[in-house]
Write a protein that binds this DNA or RNA. Sequence first.
DNA 1: GGCGCTTGTCATCAAATTGTAATGGTGGGT
DNA 2: ACCCACCATTACAATTTGATGACAAGCGCC
Lengths: 232, 232
Amino acid sequence: MAAIILVVEDEPAVREMISFVLKQSDYDTLEAEDAEEARALLADKTPDLVLMDWMLPGMSGVEFTRELKQDAVTRDIPVIMLTARGEEDDKVRGLECGAEDYITKPFSPRELTARIKVILRRVAPHATEEVVDVGALQLDPTSYRVSVGKQEVELGPTEFRLLHFFMTHMDKVYSRSRLLDRVWGANVFIEERTVDVHIRRLRKALEPYGVDGLVQTVRGAGYRFSERQAGR
Amino acid sequence: MAAIILVVEDEPAVREMISFVLKQSDYDTLEAEDAEEARALLADKTPDLVLMDWMLPGMSGVEFTRELKQDAVTRDIPVIMLTARGEEDDKVRGLECGAEDYITKPFSPRELTARIKVILRRVAPHATEEVVDVGALQLDPTSYRVSVGKQEVELGPTEFRLLHFFMTHMDKVYSRSRLLDRVWGANVFIEERTVDVHIRRLRKALEPYGVDGLVQTVRGAGYRFSERQAGR
DNA sequence: GGCGCTTGTCATCAAATTGTAATGGTGGGT
DNA sequence: ACCCACCATTACAATTTGATGACAAGCGCC
């Protein structure tokens, strides 16, 4: 459940270096050396973030970023541009073409991971590896554990993902179809009613610990995860 | 006590990047941004190897290397020069001044660690590593031994590395592919299911000593090494 | 070359998970 | 009170996923 990051960079040594740093920081990586290869990867994988070199053979990073931002499927994937030092103009143009952030080479691992973390937390909080607390409930993506106090809660993979999503998106109602998109993944063809079943399973697993009230039904709209007692 | 490597490089980002890679590869690092700072460090620390940037503010890397090679105390510390690409002349002069090897920037983590490993093996046959304890389990990397209390555990090389990795990365789930990366080495082409088999072998070896419960399966995610009982 | 050990791959079995359909409940508007 | 849309719950079969044992190729050592 680690975040997946696509690295688009033509110089193999640099690409490997970046990929190495990311892997050590618990991200999964995809690598591409140019826009074409990146497009091929994007055809069936959806990374949580793209690191895009400014200079690429063939289509430049800027052009490619613009392209990504025009496609509905890839529009929401944040892009960080990598560029040579001291080109302030680049910065402006980089952000203009829709990139979320901008890092000058050479950069330290700390800088890289820090910026990535900030952006992921903003855009895809459930893809980060941080422990999430909600009242007595605690979920640790890293060790794949859910607990209430000292008690460990048993959850299946889907219920785990569902709970993780809820805990990182509190107090907001999600329709079944939205949940399918966000938790199961985009373009899956699954019955909406199936969500009910997993909600049920999640509640059942939480019940013995008295925290099943957090999963709330909003009639006609969907489900919500909240500490506030469902009022009427 | 892993091997200590001194990184002399003026660009902070590059220095941190190198240092990061080395630390992840189980080396300890010292950092200096110029010859002067390096000299200060060398006054009371003795690294097992020096990574020296060619270009340094003040005294150049070449000069400084020559200096090191003239001092009886530092003469035997191997030096690897770091230099910009495509300066073939540099290579000659680099090696002339007494450097053991030479890497052109940018370089991949693989290239860096591979060269370091070669040189360290030549010069300092065994950089010692620390004994790891987990409960009654004890693993000694130097003597290649694993024991539970007084009892010695029989392990194959791969199971040994796997266990070593687990013991130094407790309470965290690793997917098969990540384990392949971290234990077998990056970019190996091995079936993911093979991990299962080695997990099995590791468990089998640990079983007679009652510590096989430490190796835990996390369905849909991977494996985890933990003292906390896995609910099941 | 023969032997023993390690290692990667497979085939197979057992078990957990998951999507769907069927059925029963609930709330709230009239 | 009644109806209807909507949700909860259960049961179940298909699918996935992990465990395990067997096997053959590779390797170092006599």
